[in-house]
C-alpha cells in the first residue's frame, strides 16, 4: 500500500494497465514527454515508449476517430481530452460513432475505449474549463460514464474502465486531483463499474452524490450528526448506467432523499435519479426528493464561483427541508 493523491492513483492505473496488456495505448495532447498538463501521464512515455504513449496534433475529433479505428483492431485506446469542456470538438466521435459501434455492427465490432478527461469547478478556470457535462454523456446509450471521488476508487475504476469492452467516459474532477491522499494498493485491482458505494451509513435521510460533491455530502452529514440527524451518503461512482438498486434500498430505509450534483439543474443526472426514485419507491417517501445543484447559468465567473458551486451548507439546508417537511 502507498499513500497516493487521486492523480497519482490515475497515473498508477495507467501504468498497471500499460504493463498488463500490450494493446493498451495512451495518447492525446501533451501526454507524452510533457506528461499531461496535469501530469496524469507523467513518466509513462519514458517507461513504455513512444509507440504506446504518444502526443497527437491539436485535434480532438481526430483523437476520437483514431481511437475508434484502433479499437476495432483489438487495441484498447485510452485517449485524453485535455479539458472536458473541449469534448464538443469530439462529440460526433463519441456519441455518434464509438457509442454505437456495437449496435450498428450487429454486435460484431466494439469500441473498448476509455476517454479520460479533467473537469469540474472550484479551481478558478472559467470559460469551458470547468463545466460538468456528464449529463450530456449519460444521455447516449452505449456509453458508460464514470466519476471517481477518491484515489482508491479512481485507480480501481480506471482499471475496470480500460478492461471494459465498451466505451467509457472517465471524468476526473480537478479539485480532487491533489486535495487529499488515500491508501492505494500497488497492484492491479478493479472497482466494478455501475456499482455505487454507501460511503456513510445513516437512517434519517439519503444523500446521493458523485465526484467532488461526495466530500461536500460527507461534510454535510457530519454537521447534521451534531443536530441528531443521521444521513446516509451514496457515492454513485458510475453515473451511467445508474446503480438503481443501491439507491432504492437506501430510500426504502430512510424515506427522505437529497440528490447533489455540481452540474446545473436542468436535464442532469440528479433529475434522472429523482425520476427513478418516484417510479420505484414513491410509497416509501416521507417528503419530496430535493436537489442541490448549481444554478442554470453558464459556468460562473471567478468571483461568483463560490456562490455558484453547491457546498455542504446548501446540502444541510435541503436536508432540513426534507426532514421538516
Amino acid at each position: 500500500m502507498a499513500q497516493m493523491t487521486m492523480i497519482q492513483a490515475i497515473t498508477d492505473a495507467l501504468r498497471v494497465e500499460l504493463k498488463n496488456d500490450e494493446n493498451v495505448l495512451v495518447f492525446g495532447e501533451d501526454v507524452g514527454q510533457n506528461g499531461g498538463v496535469f501530469r496524469a501521464t507523467e513518466g509513462l512515455q519514458a517507461e513504455f515508449g513512444e509507440d504506446r504513449v504518444f502526443d497527437t496534433p491539436l485535434a480532438e475529433s481526430g483523437i476520437g476517430g483514431l481511437a475508434i479505428g484502433l479499437a476495432t483492431q483489438g487495441f484498447r485506446p485510452v485517449p485524453e481530452i485535455q479539458f472536458f469542456g473541449f469534448v464538443y470538438e469530439v462529440m460526433d466521435s463519441i456519441s455518434g460513432q464509438m457509442a454505437r459501434m456495437r449496435y450498428r455492427s450487429g454486435n460484431t465490432m466494439n469500441a473498448p475505449i476509455t476517454i479520460r478527461s479533467p473537469f469540474g469547478g472550484g479551481v478558478h478556470t472559467p470559460e469551458m474549463h470547468a463545466d460538468s457535462l456528464e449529463g450530456l454523456m449519460a444521455q447516449q446509450p452505449g456509453l458508460k460514464v464514470v466519476i471517481p471521488s477518491n484515489p482508491y476508487d479512481a485507480k480501481g475504476l480506471l482499471i475496470s474502465s480500460i478492461r471494459d469492452n465498451d466505451p467509457v467516459i472517465f471524468l476526473e474532477h480537478m479539485k480532487l486531483y491533489r486535495s487529499f491522499r488515500d491508501e492505494v494498493p500497488e497492484e492491479a485491482y478493479e472497482v466494478e463499474l455501475g456499482k455505487a458505494k454507501v460511503t456513510r451509513e445513516g437512517t434519517d435521510v439519503t444523500l446521493i452524490a458523485y465526484g467532488a460533491m461526495v466530500q461536500a455530502s460527507v461534510k454535510a452529514a457530519e454537521e447534521l450528526e451534531k443536530n441528531g440527524v443521521s444521513a446516509e451518503v451514496i457515492d454513485l461512482r458510475t453515473v451511467a448506467p445508474l446503480d438503481i438498486d443501491t439507491i432504492v434500498e437506501s430510500v426504502k430505509k430512510t424515506g427522505r432523499v437529497v440528490v447533489v450534483q455540481e452540474a446545473q439543474r436542468v436535464a442532469g443526472i440528479a433529475a434522472q435519479i429523482v425520476a427513478e426514485i418516484q417510479e420505484r419507491a414513491i410509497l416509501h417517501l416521507e417528503a419530496p426528493v430535493l436537489r442541490v445543484t448549481a444554478p442554470d447559468t453558464v459556468y460562473a465567473f471567478t468571483q461568483a464561483e463560490e456562490v455558484w458551486l453547491p457546498n455542504h451548507n446548501d446540502i444541510v439546508e435541503k436536508v432540513n427541508d426534507v426532514i421538516n417537511y
Binding site: 444554478p295 442554470d296 447559468t297 453558464v298 461568483a304 455558484w308
Partner: peptide, 12 residues
C-alpha cells in the same frame, strides 16, 4: 470592483 455575484444570471 469585482463583478457582483448577483449578476450571475445576466447574459444567459
Amino acid at each position: 470592483p469585482s463583478p457582483d455575484p448577483d449578476t450571475l444570471y445576466q447574459g444567459v
